[in-house]
Simulated scan of single mutants.
Amino acid sequence: MTKQQKTLLFDLDGTLVDSFPGIRTSFLHTLKEKNWPIPTEERIARIPGPPMEWTFQDLGMTQAQAQEALKTYIEHYGLVGWDLSEAFPGMRDLLIRLKEQGFRLCTATSKGEFFAEKVLRKFEMFDLFEFLGAATDNGNRRSKPAVIKHVLDSVGLEEPSDILMIGDRSHDIEGSKEFGIDCVAVTWGYGEESEWAHARYCATDAEELERIIHEWA
C-alpha cells in the first residue's frame, strides 16, 4: 500500500449481505396490499439495488402511488424483511483484514440508514466501518451518486485515484464513474454480465476481491 490512505466504498445488498429473500418477501407483500400485478420471477430478481420507489414506478405506478407503496414496503421490511438477510461467505473476515491493513472502510448503499445499520450490526460489521454512507428514507439522498457524494463530502475525500467502489449492480459502477472512481463488480450479488462489463475490475469471490484491492492499492 502507498503512504496515502486508500478508501474502499462498499455497497451492502448483494455485496456484503444476501438481502434478496427479505427484499422479495416485503416487495411481494407490498404489491398484494396494493392489489398490483405480480411481475415475473426474472423481473423480481432484479429489484435489489435501485431505490424501491423507482422499481414501483417501473412497474407502472405513478410517483404518488410509488411513495405510498414505499411506506408499506418499509413497514413490512422493518418487521420481517431485514432479518431474513445472510452475510456472504468471507466478507466479514475480509473487512477485518482490510481495516487492519490500514484501509479506510465506508459504505455507499442505496439502503436506508436505519436498516443499513441494523443489518450491519446483525453480522457484526458495523464497527468495522469508519462511515455509514446510506440513503435517506425521506429525503433527496436516494440515488447511488447522491449517496457517494454524501460519503465523499462527509469524510473529506477528494482524490478519485485513492478511492475504490465495490458493488454488484450497474448503479454502483455508473454511480462511482460519475466521480472518476474505479469500481470492482462482484459476481455473487444481483447483477448480470452486461452490467459487470462496464466495471474496471471483476471479482468472483472474496479471495479474488482481496487480491484486486491490493493490486489496485
Rank of each mutant, 00 (worst) to 15 (best):
E130M: 03
G22P: 10
T204I: 04
L79K: 05
A203H: 05
V186D: 11
H214G: 00
G156Y: 09
G133H: 00
Q101G: 10
L128K: 14
T30G: 04
E208T: 11
A116E: 02
Q63D: 06
Y201K: 08
L59T: 05
K32N: 15
P21E: 09
K3W: 07
F20V: 00
N35C: 09
V151G: 04
A66T: 04
E33H: 13
D93R: 10
F115D: 06
K3A: 06
S85A: 15
M91F: 12
W196A: 04
T7Q: 07
I96P: 02
S85D: 12
P145N: 13
I212A: 00
H150R: 11
T107D: 07
H29D: 09
G112Y: 09
Y190T: 00
L98H: 03
G90H: 13
T25D: 11
G112V: 09
C183N: 01
K3V: 05
Y77K: 14
A199T: 10
P50E: 01
T7R: 04
I213D: 03
K122G: 02
P89H: 06
E113M: 02
R141Y: 15
I23S: 12
V119Y: 13
F126L: 14
G22N: 02
L94A: 13
L152E: 04
D83T: 09
K3M: 11
E210R: 10
L94N: 00
D162Y: 02
K32L: 14
A116K: 06
G49W: 12
I74D: 08
Q5T: 13
L157G: 04
L9C: 08
I38G: 12
L157S: 07
D11W: 08
D153M: 04
P50C: 08
I173W: 07
L128W: 15
D182A: 15
S176H: 14
D182H: 15
A108R: 12
M165S: 00
E86V: 11
